[in-house]
Amino acid sequence: MLETIPLSLDQVAAVAKECFDDGWRQVTMSAVDCGEAGFEIFYHYDKDLVMRHYRLSIPKETVVPSISPVYFCALLIENEIRDQFGICFSDIVLDFGGALYLEAEVRAMPFCKVSVAEKQS
């Protein structure tokens, strides 16, 4: 079905750099809440209309290194995931602090199945 390449937390930035140098365009990142198992984050890259998907599985309340220093365009995506899932990213170029879409009164990480306490990165 969907062929993915597993990715570990410490490889995130290195793989992004590698893809960048290799001429891959960042398509997007998708986060999925897998309940007890934590989160899955997909990194989608594209080159000449061929897509490559990296799958990063993390337990809840993990701080993920941001790839926005490499791919500037990731900043909106990472801020969006922060808004919706409460996953914190370290060193985003432009950090909206969970307020990209949501006002303070609804800041409840709406996409989570089990809500987690907000944590400052």
Binding site: S30, F72, L75
Partner: peptide
């Protein structure tokens, strides 16, 4: 781009929509 995940129930598990303007803002 759509990322779709379904778990065999009548509801989709996750519908992720990456729209073009979202990519064009940076």
């Amino acid at each position: 781009m759509y990322y779709l995940k379904a778990d065999g129930s009548k509801h989709m598990d996750r519908v992720r929509i990456r729209t073009p303007t979202f990519a064009n803002i940076p």
